[in-house]
Every structure is written in C-alpha cells, then in structure tokens.
C-alpha cells in the first residue's frame, strides 16, 4: 500500500478556468485522506472546471493545485495518473469494448499483472460494483446507471488514492442514484479511497458528503466550506441558505 499524504488534494488561491476566461477566483480548500468531499453549486458555477483541473485535464490559471502531494507537471503526470481515477458524467466507456475490456484496459497498460491475474482482477472489480453478469456486454447494451458503475470499476482498477466523480447521479432515477451513493460509501469503507464528487443533488450530498465546498457563479468564488449539515443550519450567506433550503440555484 502506498503512503499517501494527509491532504490528498490541496488548492491554494487557485484561479480556475481557461487562459481566456477565469470562472472562479481564489479557491482554497483541501481534501483529507479517506474523506468524501463534495463540490457543489448551481449549473455553470465552475465545479466541473475544478474537477478538470484536479484530474489534470486543464492547467489552473494561477495558484497551486496538488494531488497526492504532487502538482500536475509533465514530470509528475505519469505518476499522478496512476494515483487518481475519474468517472465522467457520461461514464465515458469505450463503445468498441465490452464492459470487461473497459476495466481491463488500465490493467493491461499499467498493472504489470499477467493475463489471468488481470482478468481475475477486472472480474472482481465488476463484481464489486454489482455487475459481474454484465462483463461481456457492450456499453450500448446496458443502462446509464450500469455504465457509471462500470466506469467506477474502471477508475478503481489501479487502486487509486482518490476518485473524482463528475455528477454520478445526473440523468439517473432516484433509486439508481441512491444505489450509486451506497456504492461510494461501501468502497470508501472497504478500501479507504478518498472521493471528490461533483454534485448538486441535496439528498446525495447529505447522504455521502463529509465536507463540501460551494461555489457561486455570480461572485465567481467559493462561498462556503464545511460539513453539509453545518452549512445548512449555520451559514449566514443568503446564497448558501437558499441553496440548501430550496435546492438548485442558477440552474
């Protein structure tokens, strides 16, 4: 087991966005090892942009961002990619591969395991997410919720220190969405994995979130940081109160 730092994710005075447009300014927070941390806010507030920075897809505009104690530099990229797992909003499974082949891909490329061990591990991961019987199905043959489960299994393949989940409940019915929340809680309990989850679904936030950071598009800033229940009952910010009391804003 690798030794991970106490703070798996650290952002210090980060300006998030693109060189041509800054979406959020002066974002500072850290995610502790084993924590389920929620990035929340209304549509277009920049939470998925932060997720892309965390996953190394886009560089931050300014400030310091570190994952597992390392910044996303070309030198660190290969190492960091083995320490993170990402589940995209659509699942992003490869349509030309079966579910099992999707999970096998990172194992084939990076695990160093033999063919039989790789297959056993991929089957075990699919079993962990409750999809042992979907191994030979193509992504087009399974439901949206199942695709997200396969994506989580694929993201878990290399035993990452942190999993980034982009709106896991988006487009799913409440029962399936709750099932994914249960899966996240179970994986954290069994493996100790840290999760950073983009969400704006209150039920899910209260169920799985240890702490959350909340963003406001209008102010282009992080407006709250803390446990969901504390923010709901203790925040004096009208935007935060409105969000927790009435649900989505700006969306």
């Amino acid at each position: 087991m690798r030794e991970e730092p106490e703070n798996i994710v650290e952002l210090e005075h980060v300006a998030a966005g693109y060189p041509s447009e800054t979406v959020l300014e002066d974002v500072t927070f850290s995610v502790r090892r084993g924590e389920i941390f929620i990035l929340l806010g209304g549509s277009g507030c920049g939470k998925s942009t932060i997720m892309k920075h965390l996953a190394g897809l886009n560089p931050v505009v300014s400030g310091r961002l570190a994952v597992c104690g390392m910044e996303w530099t070309p030198r660190n990229r290969a190492k960091l990619c083995r320490r993170i797992g990402v589940m995209f909003q659509s699942g992003a499974l490869f349509g030309s591969m079966t579910c099992l082949e999707n999970v096998l891909l990172p194992l084939e490329e990076f695990s160093g395991l033999g063919r039989t061990e790789r297959r056993l591990k991929a089957e075990s991961l699919l079993s962990d997410v409750g999809l042992a019987d979907a191994a030979d199905k193509m992504p087009s043959e399974i439901s949206g919720g199942m695709r997200k489960r396969v994506a989580i299994a694929r993201a878990m393949a290399l035993d990452p220190a942190v999993l980034f989940l982009d709106e896991p409940g988006a487009g799913l019915d409440p029962v399936t969405s709750a099932g994914l929340d249960d899966l996240v809680l179970r994986l954290r309990a069994e493996r100790g994995t840290t999760f950073v989850v983009v969400s704006h679904e209150l039920e899910s936030i209260f169920k799985i979130g240890d702490r959350c950071a909340m963003f406001d598009r209008a102010r282009r800033a992080m407006v709250a940081l803390g446990a969901p229940q504390e923010l709901k009952s203790g925040s004096k910010d009208p935007f935060v109160r409105a969000f927790f009391n009435r649900g989505r804003t700006n969306g």
Binding site: L57, V86, F88, A92, F94
Partner: peptide
C-alpha cells in the same frame, strides 16, 4: 464522438 463523450479525456486521465 469519442471526444464529445469524454472518452478522449478518460484516456488522458488514465495516462494514455
């Protein structure tokens, strides 16, 4: 279509 479906991003985050 793979790019629109974030499959290319998935490859990048896997280190491929």
């Amino acid at each position: 279509t793979m790019k629109a479906g974030e499959e290319i991003d998935a490859l990048v985050t896997m280190g491929l």
